[in-house]
Design a protein around this nucleic acid. Structure first.
Lengths: 250, 250
DNA sequence: GGGCCCGTTTCGCGTGAGAAAACATAGAAA
DNA sequence: TTTCTATGTTTTCTCACGCGAAACGGGCCC
């Protein structure tokens, strides 16, 4: 593996990131300051990005262009899992009343690829495309459970085990214990490990192709983790997962 | 307006486009051939894109990475219109039973930003992020109707009026006539102008911010354009539009 | 009118983007 | 087995171009 890079491309990408960091909108001088790069450089890059639709300008303010969404769409639908899974995830949201999610793993992180809100769903911050640590959410741990141990080690080495709440698993040993349990039981729990007050039930998906996936139901810990509802949710979750896996085989 | 560009960035973008053109997956030599660029160049660019998550590699095959989806998400949600509109568009799909869409204009083209399928919806090719000509669809014409005439001329100059079917409007005069009518009546029709056999009712959205938007219902011409259902659909469409506009004001 | 703060443009330097070709590896063919 | 041919990878070289610094010009507010 060589680390030959194209600096100019990297600069362009950093500009995109900077726009996001500056609340989705920024001017040239602002970006130059933020990135410590000459204004003229920013100017040329924005010109290039704009004429390719990756950036849009209104009144000298630049924002991310919808062209990015087009590329993102291809990433989303790459292996067909998204297409067969999302209707079931939607159904899962309806049945459970809560928030239901589909996640893929890429580069050692989890990416929310589809989220659906049921009638009772709390409005939490799970937007399509959001990247999160795998160890800190139920759905992420479900994905980890499908990976070989060496790969999990690798991911821990790269990204570490930062804490999101007081309940986040930050110890590699405990994480592996829990993953072992998930492998046995086929279900992953998240007890306020990613967001205070929120819990989640998740289930790995056995998919063809190289991209690990999982689904989950998320809600207030008070609702989700009480014995009765938990059983019910678990049934819905398993149903959805089974249907997806079945359809993928077909 | 200067046309100063960053060539390297442009090369990177062309590589992303090429991956899409090569059915979403390609190898280095393949890309080099497709773009007539040296293999070593492709190699370095892919390295750069990969380490930024814009491209993912498995077994020497490269595909678009989900990082693009993250950027796309910011573009989608930029002005808040998406957030308030999509639940209503979903509702519209449920009520009408057909396919319902939300579109934004950017760079003179229309981008499907959200699509929802109702119970009877035909499975047509409207995926999130897809870019289409504005003059060739009902929802696109609805968007055009919100723009000043000079801007419309500008768009015609840039993109032309290519035909998608035999019914596509390819004459600038006729297009302006129809846009005038849409402005008066507040509704746009698409009678097999973008896809043979499909029709659509669309309505412009009056939104704050710089990004024109519209919503639509699409279905088989036989269902959508018959007097009775058409009236019904129109009611649903107007309802949805009104709710969205109301919520945006709040 | 005079600051001041933008985006835009110019210019020149030094580097790194890109081509060409050699190298490595793995699978297929002989 | 050996050879051939397809990859991806690495090296070398060089000229174009990415980049920074600084000057320019327009709009806004005092």
């Amino acid at each position: 593996m060589s680390d030959d890079r194209v600096r100019a491309t990297e600069t362009s990408i950093r500009i995109l990131e900077a726009i996001v960091e500056l609340d989705g909108e920024a001017g040239i001088t602002e970006l130059a300051g933020h990135l410590s790069v000459a204004k003229s450089t920013i100017f040329k890059h924005l010109n290039t990005l704009e004429s390719n639709g990756l950036v849009v300008e209104t009144d000298d303010r630049y924002r991310i262009g919808l062209r990015a969404l087009e590329f993102g769409g291809y990433a989303q639908r790459y292996d067909g899992v998204y297409d067969t899974a999302y209707p079931e995830v939607r159904q899962l949201a309806e049945d459970s009343g809560e928030l239901a999610n589909l996640m893929f793993e890429e580069g050692g992180k989890g990416v929310y690829v589809y989220t659906a809100e049921g009638p009772k769903a709390v409005d939490i911050n799970t937007q399509t495309g959001r990247r999160v640590y795998l160890h800190a959410t139920g759905i992420g741990k479900a994905i980890l459970s499908t990976l070989p141990d060496e790969r999990i080690e690798e991911i821990i080495d790269t990204h570490g085990l930062p804490a999101a709440t007081d309940h986040t698993i930050t110890d590699s040993g405990r994480l592996f214990d829990e993953i072992e349990q998930i492998r046995r039981e086929g279900i992953a729990y998240d007890r306020e490990e990613s967001v205070e007050g929120m819990a989640c039930l998740a289930r790995p998906l056995s998919v063809p192709g190289p991209r690990p996936a999982a689904i989950s139901v998320t809600g207030p810990a008070s609702r989700v983790m009480t014995g009765e509802t938990e059983q019910q949710l678990r049934t819905y979750l398993d149903q959805a997962g089974n249907v997806i896996e079945l359809n993928l085989k077909g």
